[in-house]
Simulated assay, not measured.
Amino acid sequence: MITYNFSYAQVDLDKGLQAFDAKNYKQAFSTLKPYAEKGNCLAQYVIGFSYQYGLSVTTNDSLARHWLLLAAEQKQTNAMGPLAANLMSASDEQPDYIIKAYMWAVLAAEYLPSQRMASTRYVIKGYLKPEQLDAANKLIDEYKLKWKDKQNCPQ
C-alpha cells in the first residue's frame, strides 16, 4: 500500500494513488502520468512500476527503467528494488547496468527496511568483477553523500 503525506491538497494525485492502492491500475496510470511528467517522484514510481509489471499498459522494460530511475534519483525508495531487478535483467545487453543494479539494490536495502531482508544485492554482487564492485561502491558512497540531508520521497 502506498501511503502519502502532502502539505498541500492535490486531489487528482490523491485519487490516482488511491486508485493504485485499490488495484484500479488503468485509472491510476492515466491520473498519475501527468504528475510523473511534471517530476512527482511518487507518480514516477507508480508509472515505472506499471510498465515493469504490465499494470494496465504493455510491459516495457525501457520505459519502466526510465520512470523508476527518475523516481529513485529523487530518493523514492520503493522504486529502487524494482529498478535494480530491471537493470540486472538488462545487463546482458548493457553490461554496465550490472554495476547500477547492484548500487540500487544496496541503496534500497539501506533506505527501505523491507528491502533489508531481500537477497537481491547479494545475488548481483556474485556476478560482479572486483573492478565493477569498486565502481559500484564508489557510486553508492556518492549517493549516500548526496542524499545525506535529503528526505526520502513520500512512500
Rank of each mutant, 00 (worst) to 15 (best):
F29H: 10
V46G: 05
A71K: 03
E131A: 12
A28M: 07
L69G: 00
K26P: 01
S30N: 15
D21I: 09
I99R: 01
A135E: 12
S89D: 13
N24F: 00
A72F: 04
S89R: 11
M80G: 07
K75M: 10
T59N: 07
N60D: 15
D61S: 13
Q44E: 15
N5T: 12
N5F: 11
Y25R: 09
Q115M: 09
A90I: 03
E93R: 14
K138D: 06
A135M: 05
N78K: 13
D96Q: 13
Q27A: 15
V46D: 07
Q76T: 07
L69Y: 07
L107V: 05
A136S: 11
S114R: 13
N40H: 14
L145D: 14
Y45A: 03
S56A: 15
I47A: 08
S30I: 08
A43P: 02
D21Y: 02
A43D: 01
L32R: 03
R121G: 04
D12L: 10
F6S: 14
S56R: 08
V11F: 13
Y122R: 11
G39H: 03
D96I: 10
N137Y: 00
Y35Q: 05
W104V: 00
T31G: 10
E110W: 00
Q18W: 03
G81H: 13
E37R: 01
Y35S: 07
L107Q: 07
K146D: 11
T77E: 05
F49A: 06
A101N: 08
S56H: 04
L107F: 03
L87H: 03
Q44K: 08
L68Q: 05
N40F: 13
D96A: 14
L17W: 06
Y53L: 12
A28L: 06
L107M: 09
A85R: 07
K38I: 02
R121D: 08
A28V: 04
A71R: 02
Y111E: 02
S119P: 10
A36M: 08
Q94K: 14
L17V: 13
M88V: 09
M80W: 06
E110I: 00
F20E: 04
Q18P: 06
L17G: 08
Y53N: 14
P95T: 04
I47Y: 07
D14N: 12
D141E: 14
E73F: 04
A79Q: 06
I98D: 04
L55M: 12
F20G: 05
Q76R: 13
S114T: 15
I140T: 04
D141M: 11
L145T: 15
Q115P: 00
D141Q: 14
N5P: 00
L128N: 02
L83H: 01
Y8R: 13
I140S: 02
Y122P: 00
A136L: 06
A90F: 00
L83Y: 03
S50D: 05
C41W: 00
K75V: 08
Q44Y: 11
A64F: 04
Q10T: 11
N5A: 12
E37N: 09
Y35H: 10
Q52M: 10
Q44M: 10
S91H: 11
Y51N: 00
A90W: 00
S30D: 14
A105N: 02
Y122S: 09
Q18N: 14
H66T: 13
Q27V: 14
I98Q: 07
L128F: 01
A64P: 09
L32K: 03
L133C: 05
A108L: 03
V106K: 10
D141R: 12
L42G: 09
